[in-house]
Amino acid sequence: MVEQISVFIDNRPGRLAELCNIIGGNGVDIRALQLVEAGEFGLVRMITDNNEKAMALLKDAGMSFRKGEVLGVLMEDKPGSLGLISSILSDASINIEYAYAFITKIEKKAILILKVNDLKKAIEVLKLKGVSILENI
């Protein structure tokens, strides 16, 4: 399981830059990030190398945020990998609420971040199929 911070932001030019400066400008590295928009507002989901510090910085900046747990999966960086993992979950009737993926410094590997409706069961079935679950990224 991986810790993720979700931040509420207004959907307007420059807001993401300001948010990233709050985090990155204070020496916290954003390892992964997803930006979602819903009309007038947006949501940033991110995983950093120092979540405690990141949250302290967000708190100082007066922003609304929430820490949550998501599933981090290490997968092969090749065609079909994502389909395979999705199938394992769907076979177990687990719903994916959202997901984002990125490649890593490890050669031929990619990381998939998943938010599922049953985290415990997801870990169980993925482990059973030999998929490596990450504790941090």
């Binding site: 979700s6 509420f8 979602v36 819903a38 507002f41 949501l43 989901r45 929430r66 609420e97």
Partner: peptide, 9 residues
């Protein structure tokens, strides 16, 4: 605040 867009909507 919720991490879910649909909850916010």
């Amino acid at each position: 605040f919720s991490d879910s867009i649909s909850e916010l909507i």
